[in-house]
Amino acid sequence: MKTVMIRILLTFTFLNLSGLPLGAQAEGEDESQWTSQLKNQFFGDRPISEDHETIEITAPYRAEDPALVPIQITSKFPQTGAQFIKKITVIIDHNPTPFSASFEFTQESGKADIATRMRVNAYTYIRAIAETNDGKLHMAKAFVKASGGCSAPIGTDSEDAKARFGKMKFKFDQDKPTLGSANPVQLLISHPNITGMQMDQITRMIQPAHYVTDVNVSFDGKPVLTVKGDIALSTDPNFRFYFAPQKAGELHVDIKDNLGQQFSANQSVNP
Protein backbone atom coordinates (compact mmCIF):
# COMPACT_ATOMS: atom_id res chain seq x y z
CA MET A 1 0.00 0.00 0.00
CA LYS A 2 2.61 2.49 1.07
CA THR A 3 4.51 1.57 -2.01
CA VAL A 4 1.67 2.59 -4.28
CA MET A 5 2.42 6.28 -4.03
CA ILE A 6 6.12 5.64 -4.26
CA ARG A 7 5.63 3.58 -7.38
CA ILE A 8 3.51 6.32 -8.90
CA LEU A 9 6.16 8.90 -8.14
CA LEU A 10 8.79 6.67 -9.60
CA THR A 11 6.74 6.26 -12.69
CA PHE A 12 6.59 10.00 -13.13
CA THR A 13 10.27 10.48 -12.53
CA PHE A 14 11.18 7.62 -14.78
CA LEU A 15 13.44 8.61 -17.60
CA ASN A 16 14.75 6.40 -20.31
CA LEU A 17 18.22 7.81 -19.93
CA SER A 18 19.84 5.33 -22.22
CA GLY A 19 17.90 6.57 -25.21
CA LEU A 20 17.44 2.95 -26.14
CA PRO A 21 14.24 1.12 -26.73
CA LEU A 22 13.20 -0.30 -23.40
CA GLY A 23 13.55 -3.99 -22.86
CA ALA A 24 13.18 -6.76 -25.28
CA GLN A 25 11.57 -6.26 -28.65
CA ALA A 26 8.81 -8.22 -30.22
CA GLU A 27 8.39 -11.64 -28.68
CA GLY A 28 7.72 -13.39 -31.96
CA GLU A 29 10.24 -14.21 -34.59
CA ASP A 30 9.73 -10.96 -36.35
CA GLU A 31 10.73 -10.59 -40.02
CA SER A 32 9.15 -7.18 -40.60
CA GLN A 33 12.25 -5.08 -40.07
CA TRP A 34 14.07 -7.17 -42.63
CA THR A 35 11.37 -7.33 -45.27
CA SER A 36 10.24 -3.73 -44.95
CA GLN A 37 13.58 -2.03 -44.65
CA LEU A 38 16.88 -3.81 -44.12
CA LYS A 39 16.79 -6.10 -47.15
CA ASN A 40 16.29 -3.18 -49.45
CA GLN A 41 18.75 -0.97 -47.59
CA PHE A 42 21.63 -3.40 -47.92
CA PHE A 43 20.81 -5.43 -51.02
CA GLY A 44 18.32 -3.41 -53.03
CA ASP A 45 16.06 -5.59 -55.13
CA ARG A 46 18.57 -8.39 -55.64
CA PRO A 47 17.03 -11.80 -55.06
CA ILE A 48 18.23 -13.61 -51.93
CA SER A 49 17.73 -17.33 -51.70
CA GLU A 50 17.49 -19.28 -48.45
CA ASP A 51 18.82 -22.38 -50.13
CA HIS A 52 20.73 -24.07 -47.26
CA GLU A 53 23.30 -25.13 -49.84
CA THR A 54 25.76 -22.31 -49.38
CA ILE A 55 26.10 -21.39 -45.72
CA GLU A 56 24.73 -22.25 -42.31
CA ILE A 57 24.64 -20.04 -39.25
CA THR A 58 24.79 -21.29 -35.67
CA ALA A 59 23.96 -19.11 -32.69
CA PRO A 60 22.53 -19.87 -29.25
CA TYR A 61 18.73 -19.60 -29.16
CA ARG A 62 19.00 -17.97 -25.76
CA ALA A 63 22.09 -15.82 -25.30
CA GLU A 64 23.53 -16.28 -21.82
CA ASP A 65 25.60 -13.14 -22.10
CA PRO A 66 24.10 -10.68 -24.61
CA ALA A 67 27.44 -8.91 -24.95
CA LEU A 68 29.24 -12.12 -25.89
CA VAL A 69 27.13 -14.22 -28.24
CA PRO A 70 29.15 -16.78 -30.20
CA ILE A 71 28.16 -16.89 -33.86
CA GLN A 72 29.43 -19.43 -36.35
CA ILE A 73 28.98 -19.33 -40.09
CA THR A 74 29.92 -22.47 -41.95
CA SER A 75 30.23 -22.76 -45.72
CA LYS A 76 29.01 -25.85 -47.52
CA PHE A 77 31.86 -26.07 -50.05
CA PRO A 78 35.58 -25.25 -50.29
CA GLN A 79 36.85 -22.13 -52.02
CA THR A 80 37.81 -23.21 -55.53
CA GLY A 81 38.24 -21.25 -58.71
CA ALA A 82 34.96 -22.65 -59.98
CA GLN A 83 32.88 -21.90 -56.94
CA PHE A 84 33.66 -19.68 -53.98
CA ILE A 85 32.12 -17.26 -51.51
CA LYS A 86 33.24 -13.69 -52.00
CA LYS A 87 31.58 -12.05 -49.07
CA ILE A 88 29.40 -12.73 -46.05
CA THR A 89 27.46 -9.88 -44.46
CA VAL A 90 26.01 -10.21 -40.98
CA ILE A 91 22.87 -8.24 -40.15
CA ILE A 92 21.25 -8.24 -36.71
CA ASP A 93 17.71 -6.98 -37.37
CA HIS A 94 16.94 -5.40 -34.01
CA ASN A 95 20.33 -4.08 -33.02
CA PRO A 96 20.66 -0.27 -32.95
CA THR A 97 23.11 -0.68 -35.82
CA PRO A 98 21.87 -3.71 -37.78
CA PHE A 99 25.00 -3.90 -39.93
CA SER A 100 27.29 -5.95 -37.71
CA ALA A 101 30.17 -7.03 -39.87
CA SER A 102 31.13 -8.16 -43.33
CA PHE A 103 33.77 -10.72 -44.22
CA GLU A 104 35.44 -10.96 -47.60
CA PHE A 105 37.16 -14.18 -48.57
CA THR A 106 39.50 -15.24 -51.36
CA GLN A 107 40.77 -18.53 -52.68
CA GLU A 108 43.66 -18.16 -50.22
CA SER A 109 41.03 -18.58 -47.49
CA GLY A 110 40.52 -22.21 -48.49
CA LYS A 111 37.13 -22.27 -46.82
CA ALA A 112 34.78 -19.34 -46.20
CA ASP A 113 33.96 -20.14 -42.58
CA ILE A 114 33.89 -17.48 -39.93
CA ALA A 115 33.17 -17.53 -36.23
CA THR A 116 33.06 -14.49 -33.99
CA ARG A 117 31.30 -13.06 -30.92
CA MET A 118 28.66 -10.39 -31.10
CA ARG A 119 26.53 -8.10 -29.00
CA VAL A 120 22.82 -8.69 -29.37
CA ASN A 121 20.49 -6.05 -28.01
CA ALA A 122 17.06 -7.62 -28.40
CA TYR A 123 15.12 -10.69 -29.48
CA THR A 124 16.15 -10.77 -33.08
CA TYR A 125 17.12 -12.64 -36.19
CA ILE A 126 20.79 -12.72 -36.98
CA ARG A 127 21.30 -13.09 -40.72
CA ALA A 128 24.29 -14.08 -42.74
CA ILE A 129 24.07 -13.22 -46.42
CA ALA A 130 26.69 -14.82 -48.63
CA GLU A 131 27.58 -13.56 -52.06
CA THR A 132 29.02 -16.29 -54.28
CA ASN A 133 31.39 -15.73 -57.19
CA ASP A 134 28.45 -15.88 -59.61
CA GLY A 135 27.07 -12.76 -57.93
CA LYS A 136 24.15 -14.59 -56.31
CA LEU A 137 23.03 -14.00 -52.73
CA HIS A 138 22.28 -16.78 -50.25
CA MET A 139 20.96 -16.26 -46.75
CA ALA A 140 20.99 -18.27 -43.52
CA LYS A 141 19.45 -16.96 -40.34
CA ALA A 142 19.15 -17.79 -36.65
CA PHE A 143 16.80 -16.38 -34.05
CA VAL A 144 18.43 -15.28 -30.81
CA LYS A 145 16.78 -14.25 -27.56
CA ALA A 146 18.98 -11.67 -25.91
CA SER A 147 18.58 -8.23 -24.48
CA GLY A 148 20.80 -5.30 -23.79
CA GLY A 149 24.03 -6.53 -25.34
CA CYS A 150 24.95 -3.16 -26.78
CA SER A 151 24.38 -1.11 -23.68
CA ALA A 152 25.63 -3.72 -21.21
CA PRO A 153 28.47 -2.37 -19.12
CA ILE A 154 31.84 -3.56 -20.22
CA GLY A 155 34.53 -4.76 -17.90
CA THR A 156 37.50 -3.62 -19.87
CA ASP A 157 38.55 -0.68 -17.75
CA SER A 158 40.84 -2.98 -15.83
CA GLU A 159 44.55 -2.21 -15.81
CA ASP A 160 45.24 -5.51 -17.55
CA ALA A 161 42.92 -4.67 -20.42
CA LYS A 162 44.44 -1.20 -20.82
CA ALA A 163 47.95 -2.60 -20.83
CA ARG A 164 47.20 -4.98 -23.69
CA PHE A 165 45.19 -2.54 -25.82
CA GLY A 166 45.95 -3.11 -29.49
CA LYS A 167 47.75 -6.39 -28.89
CA MET A 168 46.92 -9.20 -31.31
CA LYS A 169 47.72 -12.85 -31.60
CA PHE A 170 47.14 -15.71 -33.99
CA LYS A 171 46.33 -19.18 -32.74
CA PHE A 172 46.54 -22.30 -34.85
CA ASP A 173 44.62 -25.45 -34.22
CA GLN A 174 47.59 -27.62 -35.05
CA ASP A 175 51.23 -27.06 -34.25
CA LYS A 176 52.03 -26.92 -37.93
CA PRO A 177 49.65 -25.99 -40.70
CA THR A 178 49.25 -28.40 -43.57
CA LEU A 179 50.30 -27.07 -46.95
CA GLY A 180 47.76 -27.03 -49.73
CA SER A 181 44.72 -27.41 -47.52
CA ALA A 182 42.48 -25.14 -45.47
CA ASN A 183 43.85 -24.63 -41.95
CA PRO A 184 41.79 -23.16 -39.14
CA VAL A 185 43.29 -20.12 -37.45
CA GLN A 186 42.07 -17.77 -34.78
CA LEU A 187 42.81 -14.06 -34.54
CA LEU A 188 42.48 -12.43 -31.12
CA ILE A 189 42.42 -8.63 -30.92
CA SER A 190 42.65 -6.80 -27.61
CA HIS A 191 40.35 -3.81 -28.08
CA PRO A 192 37.46 -2.61 -25.86
CA ASN A 193 35.19 -2.12 -28.88
CA ILE A 194 33.06 0.45 -27.09
CA THR A 195 29.64 0.82 -28.67
CA GLY A 196 29.06 4.43 -27.69
CA MET A 197 25.95 3.30 -25.85
CA GLN A 198 27.43 2.73 -22.43
CA MET A 199 26.65 5.76 -20.33
CA ASP A 200 28.13 7.08 -17.13
CA GLN A 201 25.11 7.89 -15.00
CA ILE A 202 26.93 10.40 -12.79
CA THR A 203 28.47 12.52 -15.50
CA ARG A 204 25.65 11.66 -17.91
CA MET A 205 28.37 11.23 -20.44
CA ILE A 206 28.24 8.56 -23.08
CA GLN A 207 31.50 6.71 -23.36
CA PRO A 208 32.51 7.63 -26.92
CA ALA A 209 32.29 4.83 -29.42
CA HIS A 210 35.65 3.20 -29.99
CA TYR A 211 35.57 0.10 -32.11
CA VAL A 212 37.48 -1.82 -34.74
CA THR A 213 36.34 -0.93 -38.26
CA ASP A 214 38.84 -2.77 -40.46
CA VAL A 215 40.71 -6.02 -40.17
CA ASN A 216 42.90 -7.13 -43.06
CA VAL A 217 44.55 -10.52 -42.88
CA SER A 218 46.97 -11.55 -45.60
CA PHE A 219 49.34 -14.43 -46.21
CA ASP A 220 52.54 -13.51 -48.04
CA GLY A 221 50.87 -10.33 -49.24
CA LYS A 222 47.74 -12.04 -50.60
CA PRO A 223 44.46 -11.22 -48.86
CA VAL A 224 42.92 -14.03 -46.82
CA LEU A 225 40.20 -12.27 -44.88
CA THR A 226 38.94 -8.69 -44.96
CA VAL A 227 36.57 -7.63 -42.19
CA LYS A 228 34.50 -4.49 -41.91
CA GLY A 229 33.41 -4.25 -38.32
CA ASP A 230 30.92 -2.25 -36.32
CA ILE A 231 29.74 -1.90 -32.73
CA ALA A 232 28.16 -5.36 -32.66
CA LEU A 233 31.56 -7.02 -32.42
CA SER A 234 32.16 -7.94 -28.77
CA THR A 235 34.93 -6.55 -26.62
CA ASP A 236 38.25 -8.14 -27.65
CA PRO A 237 37.13 -9.07 -31.17
CA ASN A 238 37.85 -12.64 -32.01
CA PHE A 239 37.70 -14.30 -35.43
CA ARG A 240 38.09 -17.93 -36.39
CA PHE A 241 38.62 -18.50 -40.08
CA TYR A 242 40.62 -20.59 -42.53
CA PHE A 243 43.65 -20.00 -44.68
CA ALA A 244 45.28 -22.30 -47.22
CA PRO A 245 49.04 -21.81 -47.45
CA GLN A 246 50.85 -23.39 -50.41
CA LYS A 247 54.30 -22.79 -48.85
CA ALA A 248 55.97 -21.34 -45.78
CA GLY A 249 55.28 -17.65 -45.35
CA GLU A 250 54.00 -14.93 -43.15
CA LEU A 251 50.52 -14.28 -41.88
CA HIS A 252 50.01 -10.57 -41.42
CA VAL A 253 47.18 -8.52 -39.94
CA ASP A 254 46.45 -4.79 -40.00
CA ILE A 255 43.59 -3.34 -38.02
CA LYS A 256 42.15 0.13 -37.82
CA ASP A 257 39.55 1.55 -35.46
CA ASN A 258 37.03 4.38 -35.82
CA LEU A 259 39.41 6.80 -34.08
CA GLY A 260 42.06 6.06 -36.68
CA GLN A 261 44.29 4.02 -34.42
CA GLN A 262 46.15 1.29 -36.27
CA PHE A 263 47.88 -1.87 -35.16
CA SER A 264 49.50 -4.76 -36.94
CA ALA A 265 50.99 -8.14 -36.15
CA ASN A 266 52.84 -10.95 -37.92
CA GLN A 267 53.04 -14.66 -37.51
CA SER A 268 55.44 -16.77 -39.48
CA VAL A 269 54.08 -20.03 -40.77
CA ASN A 270 56.57 -22.88 -41.17
CA PRO A 271 54.95 -26.17 -42.02
Binding site: R7, L10, T13, F14, L17, S147, G148, P153, Q198, I202
Partner: peptide, 26 residues
Amino acid sequence: AHAMAMRAPYYLSQAKDQLGLTLSAE
Protein backbone atom coordinates in the same frame (compact mmCIF):
# COMPACT_ATOMS: atom_id res chain seq x y z
CA ALA B 1 29.88 4.57 -7.57
CA HIS B 2 31.52 4.12 -10.96
CA ALA B 3 29.98 0.67 -11.37
CA MET B 4 26.54 2.06 -10.46
CA ALA B 5 27.01 4.90 -12.92
CA MET B 6 28.07 2.63 -15.76
CA ARG B 7 25.36 0.06 -15.15
CA ALA B 8 22.42 2.29 -14.28
CA PRO B 9 21.23 2.97 -17.84
CA TYR B 10 21.36 -0.73 -18.68
CA TYR B 11 19.78 -1.77 -15.39
CA LEU B 12 17.05 0.87 -15.83
CA SER B 13 16.23 -0.40 -19.28
CA GLN B 14 15.96 -3.97 -18.00
CA ALA B 15 14.13 -3.39 -14.70
CA LYS B 16 10.58 -3.36 -16.01
CA ASP B 17 10.80 -6.45 -18.19
CA GLN B 18 13.13 -8.54 -16.10
CA LEU B 19 12.22 -7.54 -12.55
CA GLY B 20 8.78 -5.97 -12.86
CA LEU B 21 10.18 -2.83 -11.22
CA THR B 22 9.83 0.75 -12.30
CA LEU B 23 13.10 2.40 -11.39
CA SER B 24 14.64 5.80 -11.86
CA ALA B 25 18.13 7.18 -11.51
CA GLU B 26 17.27 8.00 -7.87
